[in-house]
Design a protein around this nucleic acid. Structure first.
Lengths: 333, 333
DNA sequence: TTGAAAGCGCTAACAG
DNA sequence: CTGTTAGCGCTTTCAA
C-alpha cells in the first residue's frame, strides 16, 4: 500500500505537506502541490479510511438495519438509500435484524464501534427509551416505519392506519360488511388498528372470527390463512391482507375453494408491488409511496450529519388506494 | 467514548495490561484481569474497530457487490451471506454496481480503502485481467456468477448453459421445434449459448426471428418482448425466458393475445422464484440452487481469509428443471 | 509555505 | 505478570 510517507520520502518533503496537498489545502505552494499530486496519481495512492477515521475525519459510512433483505419492500429501501448516498460519497454497512431486538442491538453496537456517521433503522424492534440508551448521542439516527412514536429521533412513517382505513372504507362502499383481515404476527399491529377504526366508523361490529393472524408469512402464509378463514362458520365477503404477497396467496386459496374473484369474494392488498399488473387478477391495493422512503431518509440523515443541530423531523407519507380488479360490489344472496 | 486509557487510569495500570485483559491474554494475572473486565463491563467499554484495524487486526468486514439489490435473486444471496458471516463475527459493506464496470471499480477501491478482509462480487462487469489489477493482492475474492472464466479468483457459478439446455431439450421432447428465446441485454449471453447449443444438438436450425433480446427487463420486459415475438411472421410454439420475472410478463402477453397456456403456447422460465406456485399457471422453470450460492461463497471466502494459502476453487452448481403447468405437448395444426 | 510534533485508540514486541 | 515503547496512516495545531 502506498502511504503519505512513501510520497513524502520520494519527494523529500514532510508528510504533513503531502497531506495538505492531497486534501487540496490552500496552504501549500501550487508547484509542490502539483508535484505531490502527480506522484500520488502515478503511485495510485489511496487514503486509508481507517487512519482518516481515527485521526478524526468522518468515516463516510452509514449503517442500515432492516428486518430482512429478501422482501421487495425493504430491498427497495436499501437500494434507494445506496443510490442516494453513493453520490454523497458515503457507503453502506448493512444488517438484517429478523425483527429480533437482540440482533438489532448487536448491529447498533457494531455500527458505533465502526464509527459510522449515521444510521437508519427500518421497523425497529426496540422501544424508544432503550434505543436512546444504546445509541451514542452523537450519531444521527433516522427511524423508518417505527411501530411506536419516538421522541428522540427523526422518523419516516407511512400513514398505515389511514391507508388501511381507506381500503376498508372502499369495501364498505361496495356493500361489504363481513370484511376479513389477514396478517402476520410481526407487521400487523398498526394495520389492525386501522381496520378496527374503519369498522367502528362504519358501525360494523368487530368480530374475531373474521380475523386471522399468525406467524406464517409470504404467499404461503396468505394462502393458509385464507383457507382457515373460509373454513369458519362466519364467512367474509371481502378480505384485507396486510401485504400484497400474502394477498396473492389468499387469492390462490379462494380459487382453490372454488370462489371467483372478485365475484364471490373481494381481496385487497397493501404495498403495490411490481408484479401486480401481470397477475391473472390484478389486485386492488394500497400503494406505498414508491421510491420516497429511502430518499427522504437520506435527506433527513444528511441534513443531520452536516448540520449538528438540525431539527428532528417526523415525516408521515400518505399511501394511496389503487383500485384494480380484485374488488367488486358485494354479491347478493 | 470509553477507551482502554480510561480504564487503565481508573485502575492505575498500564493501558497494555488492559488491552491484554480484554483480549483474554494468558499473560495477565487472573485477579487484575477480573478487575479490568468488571470495570470494562461497568463502563460499557467497546473496542474501536478503526483503531484495532489500524493497529493491525482484522477489520472483520467483507464487501459485497451485486448488480442490483431489488432483484429477488441477488437479495437472497445478500441475505444468505449476511446470515452466515454474522455468526463468524463479520459484517457487510454493500454496493450495487448496476452492471456498470465503473461503479463496480468504484466500490472495489472503496473496499480496499476500508481494509475489508474479503469480498464477493456477483456478476462482475470487469474483465479478469483488469480486476486483477485493481484489487490488492492480499485480499481474498470470490466471484459469483461470472460471465467469463477467471484464472485468478475463486468462482461460484450456476451451470447456466446446461440449465438452459435441459429446458430446451424438454420442450423438444414435447414436440416443439419453433422455440422462442426472450432475454435482456445484460444477463443473456451464457443462456443464449445454451439455447443455441441445445438447438444444434437436436438439429434444429437457429433463427433470429425467434429470439428477442433488448434492454427492457422485469415483467414489463417479458411482456413487451413476447408481444413482439407473437407479432412476427414465424411464430414460436414455445418460449424460453431468461428469468421467471420476464416469464410472468410473457405469460400475460400471450393471454392478452388470446393464447392459452400451455395449450396454445408453452412458456418456461428460469430461477424458480417463490411466487410461482401461486400464479394462475404455475411456471415450468429451471431452479437455481436455492440457499446455496451465498453459503458456499462465504465458506470459500472464510477459508481463504483464515488460511492464507488455501486453494482457489471453481465451483459449479447444477440447476434443475422443475416441470409445472406452463408447458405441454406441441399443438397439432 | 513548510516542518515538527502530538495524538486518534489500539496492538505487539521487548524488557523487566 | 506488567510496564515501556514504537507504530499503524493520517490530521492538525504550533512554530519556524
Amino acid at each position: 500500500m502506498v502511504t503519505l510517507k512513501d510520497i513524502a520520502e520520494r519527494l523529500g518533503v514532510d508528510i504533513s505537506t503531502v497531506s495538505r496537498a492531497i486534501n487540496d489545502s490552500e496552504r501549500v505552494k501550487p508547484q509542490t502541490k502539483a508535484l505531490i499530486k502527480a506522484l500520488a496519481e502515478e503511485l495510485d495512492y489511496k487514503p486509508d479510511d481507517l487512519a482518516q477515521g481515527l485521526a478524526g475525519k468522518r468515516t463516510n459510512t452509514i449503517g442500515i438495519i432492516v428486518p430482512e433483505i429478501i422482501n421487495a419492500y425493504y430491498a427497495e429501501i436499501i437500494a434507494e438509500i445506496e443510490e442516494r448516498v453513493i453520490h454523497e460519497g458515503y457507503s453502506i454497512i448493512l444488517g438484517q435484524s429478523n425483527f429480533d431486538s437482540r440482533r438489532e442491538s448487536y448491529y447498533i453496537n457494531l455500527f458505533s464501534r465502526k464509527r459510522i456517521n449515521g444510521m437508519v433503522i427500518v421497523t425497529s424492534a426496540i422501544p424508544a427509551e432503550s434505543l436512546k440508551k444504546i445509541i451514542p448521542d452523537n450519531i444521527p439516527v433516522v427511524l423508518v416505519e417505527t411501530a411506536q412514536d419516538n421522541p428522540y429521533y427523526s422518523t419516516i412513517n407511512i400513514d398505515n392506519e389511514n391507508g388501511v382505513k381507506e381500503a376498508i372504507e372502499y369495501l364498505v362502499k361496495l356493500g361489504h360488511r363481513k370484511i376479513g383481515f389477514i396478517g402476520d404476527t410481526i407487521t400487523t399491529a398498526v394495520r389492525l388498528a386501522g381496520y378496527k377504526a374503519a369498522l367502528a366508523q362504519n358501525s360494523i361490529e368487530y368480530s374475531d372470527s373474521l380475523v386471522c393472524i399468525d406467524n406464517a408469512r409470504f404467499e404461503k402464509g396468505g394462502y393458509d390463512k385464507m383457507l382457515n378463514l373460509l373454513n369458519r362458520k362466519e364467512k367474509p365477503t371481502a378480505v384485507f391482507c396486510v401485504n400484497d404477497t400474502m394477498a396473492i396467496g389468499a387469492v390462490k386459496a379462494a380459487k382453490v375453494k372454488g370462489l371467483k374473484i372478485p365475484d364471490d369474494i373481494s381481496v385487497i392488498g397493501f404495498d403495490d408491488i411490481n408484479i401486480i399488473p401481470y397477475l391473472e387478477v390484478p389486485l386492488t391495493t394500497v400503494r406505498q409511496p414508491k421510491g420516497e422512503v429511502g430518499n427522504i431518509s437520506v435527506s433527513v440523515l444528511m441534513k443531520m450529519i452536516k448540520n449538528k443541530n438540525s431539527f428532528m423531523q417526523n415525516i408521515v407519507l400518505k399511501p394511496e388506494l389503487v383500485v384494480r380488479e380484485s374488488t367488486a360490489v358485494v354479491k347478493q344472496n
